[in-house]
């Protein structure tokens, strides 16, 4: 389960080797924007070695490769796929075809390497107007898609508007992505908050993303991880309520009742599903107090 994803510049050994202890649920080894064209080859080898030799237990590994319209992306995949990263972040995904292009090549490599089909997930980075409009088609393009990921910096440039801290300019893109991802039954991650010195603003921004339905959020600074992790974790009140829901349902079943109310509200299937997700998350995060008793 991923709440927070931290970008690590792909050619910076000091950041890479410490990436697993910074508090992120997942790290994104960046071969794209954080690496200059002259160092693409070096970063690729360095990231591959980091994946191969460093222990990232408890921290999922994502690689942002270069986009399919560059000369680098296949070499990026060639280098990192044997190390079995959990996810590939595919920048500038504008159409379902972009995702399918990457999917086809990853499939080819999986076969060559003897990896199970779809063992490496794909996370399209939606950062163009075209990508936002095609969000559902992209999310539903193939089985490999694990999540959509919103990239607001490039998107606002494409929209010809200014990126602001409040984020009014990306409201549509945010809600559109959440709807598209949920319709396709995949996860959805919010763009990083970019002011690394604003320790308050990150909380507001993360709370907004959570309220809109995002699964989690990316970060470019470890200083933002605590706000993201806390915001996207279930609260103790939510966990308690989830248990009450499940107990009420169990009791209703035992009594042969069809429907049941809890705290004056009818418990229906979506509420039960949500309660189950909450408890599952709490268990994974070790927040489940009932385990301790």
């Amino acid at each position: 389960m991923i709440r927070s994803m931290l970008f690590l510049p792909g050619n910076n050994p000091n950041m890479l080797i410490n990436g697993s202890v910074l508090g992120a649920d997942a790290v994104i080894f960046d071969l794209e924007d954080a690496v200059s064209p002259a160092e693409k080859d070096a970063a690729r080898v360095l990231v591959r070695n980091t994946l191969r030799y460093m222990d990232f237990t408890g921290c999922q590994r994502i690689v942002r490769i270069n986009s399919t319209d560059t000369a680098y992306w296949k070499a990026d995949l060639d280098a990192v796929l044997p190390e079995k990263p959990e996810l590939i972040l595919l920048p500038k995904t504008g159409t379902a075809q972009d995702a399918l292009t990457a999917d086809a090549y990853i499939t080819e490599l999986e076969e060559k390497l003897g990896l199970p089909a779809n063992s490496v997930g794909l996370m399209p980075l939606i950062e163009t107007a075209l990508g936002v409009e095609n969000a559902y088609a992209i999310a539903a393009s193939c089985k490999r898609i694990h999540a959509l990921f919103l990239g607001a910096e490039d998107l606002t440039a494409d929209l010809r508007c200014k990126r602001t801290k409040e984020g009014r300019e990306i409201e549509y893109a945010r809600t559109r992505l959440v709807v598209a991802a949920r319709a396709a039954d995949v996860e959805v991650y919010d763009t990083p908050f970019t002011d690394v010195n604003d320790d308050e603003g990150i909380w507001t921004d993360a709370e907004l993303a959570k309220a809109l339905g995002f699964t989690g959020k990316a970060a470019i600074s470890p200083r933002h991880l605590e706000a993201i992790n806390q915001t996207f974790s279930p609260t103790l009140a939510e966990i308690d309520y989830a248990y009450e829901v499940l107990e009420a349902i169990a009791m209703a079943k035992a009594q042969g009742k069809g429907a049941i109310a809890l705290r004056g509200k009818m418990i229906d299937a979506p509420i039960v599903a949500r309660a189950q997700r909450t408890i599952e998350m709490a268990e994974q995060l070790g927040l489940d107090r009932r385990d301790a008793e």
């Binding site: 410490n18 910074l22 470890p222 200083r223």
Partner: peptide, 11 residues
């Protein structure tokens, strides 16, 4: 400090 390791230790 902006050193991420330093920040983790500080926290």
């Amino acid at each position: 400090t902006r050193d991420p390791v330093g920040l983790v230790m500080a926290s």
